[in-house]
């Protein structure tokens, strides 16, 4: 399986969309236009897109509190997402979920998740559904280095292996669980943990879309072939704080700037496709321009959208009660 020109343009479009989306949310949050709190994915785009480029609607993913990128990569409507983050009635979840609970089951997106480690067991369930109903689908849990230490995650590794589920655990290790360094909090290594559970594990540079894409391809193929679960340890960086408003005093001086200058995943992608003449520079700038105006439109829609009313408060608790 190879990435053709259209695939590459689509991958770049999704990564740009995530970056623009997050930058916009950053600005709007700072301006006081977004309630609650948000966790931004900027800097990590190659991971979500590198994995999700392989997926279809029959495949499921579960995400984290830092979920916007996974949602966009899996095909959720960015305008609906933006409205959701603004708490508007036309939001993807009617304004009831917000940033940490964006979901679209019709796209196989089982939700961002406010509980660290909450998604891995759910993904075992989605994988079990795929296996039982023989849909050929796979299920992927995105989790952070923090969640990798949760019992739910380790139990899920075991269950997925014991039941030979088409499940993949993508550990997005951005170096920090909130403010705590993964270098300190994670005993052993992620890939050795995978090995301990008897499943293939691979470490990959999360700034490199192509590397992520290739590792994900192998894991997803195994899962689709009935060869059980895999783990992918993606090493990457986030550009913003744990949440918006985090002063990021725990990071080293210049740490983020250095990454942005040398390992930005969008830049790396751009260099690669232009150097290898896979895409023209014009192709890319066209995508950038259209994404930018689309995100502006998303923000405008969200700003102008109507808010839910009291009539919405008690709906959707149950199907029937």
């Amino acid at each position: 399986m190879q990435l053709n020109r259209d695939d590459l343009k689509e991958a770049y479009r999704r990564m740009c969309l995530i970056r623009e989306f997050e930058d916009k949310v950053h600005d709007e949050f700072a301006a006081g236009n977004i309630p609650g709190f948000v966790h931004l994915y900027a800097g990590e785009e190659a991971s979500a897109v590198g994995v999700c480029m392989h997926l279809e609607d029959r495949d499921a993913i579960a995400s984290t509190h830092r979920g916007h990128g996974h949602c966009i990569a899996k095909g959720c409507d960015a305008e609906g997402m933006m409205s959701e983050i603004y708490g508007k009635k036309d939001g993807l979840c009617g304004g009831k979920g917000g940033s940490m609970h964006i979901a679209d089951l019709s796209k196989g997106m089982l939700g961002a998740n406010g509980i660290v480690g909450g998604g891995s067991p759910l993904i075992c369930g989605a994988a079990l559904t795929a296996k039982t109903l023989k849909t050929g689908g796979v299920a992927i849990a995105f989790l952070g280095d923090g969640a990798s230490n949760q019992g739910t995650t380790l139990e899920s590794y075991n269950l997925a292996k014991v039941w030979n589920l088409p499940a993949i655990f993508v550990v997005e290790d951005n170096g920090y669980a909130e403010s705590t360094a993964s270098a300190w909090s994670v005993a052993g290594t992620q890939t050795k943990r995978a090995e301990g559970f008897g499943m293939p594990g691979a470490e990959v540079d999360g700034h490199d879309f192509f590397a992520v894409w290739e590792v994900a391809r192998e894991a997803i193929e195994r899962a689709r072939n009935g060869e059980g679960p895999s783990l992918i340890h993606v090493k990457l960086n986030r550009y913003y704080g744990h949440f918006e408003g985090d002063a990021i005093t725990y990071k080293g001086e210049g740490e983020i700037d250095k990454i942005k200058a040398t390992k930005d995943c969008l830049n790396l992608f751009k260099q690669r496709v232009i150097e290898t003449s896979l895409l023209e520079s014009d192709d890319l700038s066209e995508i950038e321009t259209s994404v930018k105006s689309y995100i502006d439109q998303c923000a405008a829609t969200a700003t102008n959208g109507s808010t839910p009313t009291e009539a919405d408060l008690m709906t959707d608790v149950y199907l029937k009660y």
């Binding site: 089982l110 369930g125 989605a126 559904t129 299920a139 019992g151 269950l159």
Partner: peptide, 28 residues
Amino acid sequence: RERVLDTPISESAFIGCAAGAAATGLRP
């Protein structure tokens, strides 16, 4: 065994798994 699944002693994993399976089309 495809429909009657013994689990390891891992309530977090299999109760969550049941929730995820329910949300994706099974009736666990």
